[in-house]
Computed example of a mutant assay.
Amino acid sequence: MLERSEPDTALAYSRYEPDIRRTISFRLLEKQRDLKLLWRWMNQAHVVPQWKMAKPIEDIAAYIDINLADPHQDPYIGLIDGTPMSYWEAYWAKDDVLGRYYPAEKKDRGWHMLVGEPSFFGRGIAPAVIRAFTRFLFLDDPGTQKVVGEPSVAARRLLRYAPACAFEEQGEIDLPDKRAKLMFCYRERFIQQFGL
């Protein structure tokens, strides 16, 4: 059984989502607090094919250290009604490997994510958290006009949610670790569909 987190005053984003009648929040990952959680998620059968991080806890600790020290990205834990359920990496596309595959603008943002807790599958939750994190990135920097993504062509479930989250396919690209769909979500279209 999942345990609800203690009240968190360090939330980067929190908003009630009427579509799922729950509150979605994000907070920066904290190594001491989140190491065991992220290690468990990375070793979940549904996560391993995409993330390929089924490794000992020491390797996940090193991965967290690298991410926390990397100025081009920030790791977040996603929560629903206070319960941790997802992991996110927000990055600046121009400074990411993806920035070599399209003409990235200075303020373009992107994200990687995983839903670690199977109990949060279904019921419209994935599209709601994707929209929430995308909204968070637009709110975080008013100069961000586009949020980008590069999901694997094999990530059929995630790709199915793209149109419902205002992401538009731009074509396929060959990244060093995968064949991916290049996806753009423009601020103006997102606001028209979902508001900020």
Rank of each mutant, 00 (worst) to 15 (best):
E3C: 10
M53T: 05
D81E: 06
P18W: 00
G116E: 04
F121R: 09
T9R: 14
Y101M: 09
A61V: 11
C165N: 05
R21W: 00
E89Y: 09
S5A: 15
K31C: 13
Y16F: 15
Q192H: 11
L137Q: 14
E150R: 02
R22K: 15
V153K: 08
V148G: 06
L159A: 03
D8M: 09
D59G: 01
L137M: 15
G122E: 09
E58H: 13
D19S: 11
H46C: 06
R123A: 10
A93I: 04
L2Q: 14
A155T: 01
K55T: 09
A93T: 09
L11S: 05
K106G: 02
L158H: 10
P75G: 03
L35Q: 08
V147A: 02
S152W: 06
R189V: 03
M85N: 05
S86K: 12
S25W: 02
F167I: 07
I77G: 11
M85F: 15
L11A: 03
D34P: 08
R156V: 13
Q73F: 04
M183E: 07
A45M: 01
E105M: 06
G171C: 10
D59F: 04
W92M: 02
L175D: 13
F26H: 03
V97T: 14
I80T: 04
R187T: 00
T9Y: 08
R123C: 06
L28A: 13
F138L: 10
M113I: 10
D108C: 08
E105F: 01
L38V: 13
T9G: 08
L159Q: 02
Y76G: 03
P163Y: 11
A104G: 15
K52F: 00
K31S: 14
P118S: 08
L79W: 05
Y13T: 08
A126W: 01
P103D: 11
N67T: 09
I24A: 00
N67Q: 14
I66T: 13
N67V: 12
E3W: 10
L137R: 01
C185F: 05
R160W: 02
K31P: 12
I125R: 07
D70Q: 07
D108T: 04
A154K: 12
L2P: 13
A166P: 04
K106C: 02
A93L: 03
T23H: 01
P18Q: 02
E105I: 03
K52S: 06
F133H: 00
V47L: 00
W88L: 11
P49F: 05
L98F: 01
D19V: 02
D81F: 08
F184Y: 13
K55P: 01
W111H: 10
T144G: 00
L137S: 01
V148M: 15
L28G: 11
I64P: 12
Y161D: 09
P103W: 13
A10R: 14
M42L: 09
A10V: 05
A62V: 12
A61W: 10
Y102T: 10
D8R: 14
I80A: 05
L29P: 02
P84H: 06
R27C: 02
E188I: 03
P75L: 11
H72W: 11
V129W: 04
I173M: 12
E17T: 03
E6I: 12
F26R: 04
A62P: 02
E117H: 07
L68F: 08
Q32F: 03
